[in-house]
Design a binder for these strands. Sequence first.
DNA 1: TCTTGACTTGGACGAAGTCCATCGTAGGAT
DNA 2: ATCCTACGATGGACTTCGTCCAAGTCAAGA
Lengths: 136, 136
Amino acid sequence: MSDLLDRLRGRGWRLTSQRRVVAQVLDGDHVHLTADEVHLRAAARLPEISRATVYNTLGELVALGEVLEVSTVGRAKRYDPNARRPHQHLVCSGCGTVRDVHPAGDALGDLPEAERFGFAVGSVEITYRGLCPACA
Amino acid sequence: MSDLLDRLRGRGWRLTSQRRVVAQVLDGDHVHLTADEVHLRAAARLPEISRATVYNTLGELVALGEVLEVSTVGRAKRYDPNARRPHQHLVCSGCGTVRDVHPAGDALGDLPEAERFGFAVGSVEITYRGLCPACA
DNA sequence: TCTTGACTTGGACGAAGTCCATCGTAGGAT
DNA sequence: ATCCTACGATGGACTTCGTCCAAGTCAAGA
């Protein structure tokens, strides 16, 4: 965790108490929180932190590549602090729960040259959708 | 197109002029429209159509599997009328252009049983990201 | 043609997220 | 140790995207 704070300081970040708290919340456990949940947990430690600051900080962490945005259909974005090990996501269509998964194939390689339309393809994002045991 | 209307009638849909117009708009050209764009185009043919009806109709078409929701990063959902042939999307990180692509692998099969956490996995959504020739 | 319940309407409502003017403070300068 | 100041925080208004609802309308079967 202090690793993260160190990296941020190394990039010229001012270490405000707000940013420290947001970083701590994200590092706390490996869940996929919405911005609102991050705000809730951050406010437990620093009651006066504002929503705008949480949004700003999350946006900056995403821009720095320290945190990933998980695109969800029709729900609030979720933030994934596990940006360092590549993985994909399994999303419950019922409750929105997100789990990290590690499929076997090579999706990038599976896209034939003829299908790339001259694009410089850099990444693949795979989302598996289904119902979790509780929602089934 | 009348194929689509036939299928919908076969499923017990009442064929209202509003539903007809939305179906026509979606069938018109193979683009990836937002709900608002669908409403705009539908209103060109049937000026008094309401936003609520467009949302309802799109939701029903998605539920019936006639249209796909494309998850976009942080913007409005897009609706893809090309639901009959399975395909994935190639998105330009520069300008946002979306192209349909057809990768070779079997992404669903690539997710090991041990990685499914008891979920009933039903679909995979793959998004390739990169820069199109114009943006590169 | 009549009837009826499915469909549509528009406006209020709500959730998620952005913007902005103003205030506060981290951290370098002295 | 204190001062300065630009960067960051604040909170409330605003925007965007979408849902809900009560009341009115109409497609299609009897």
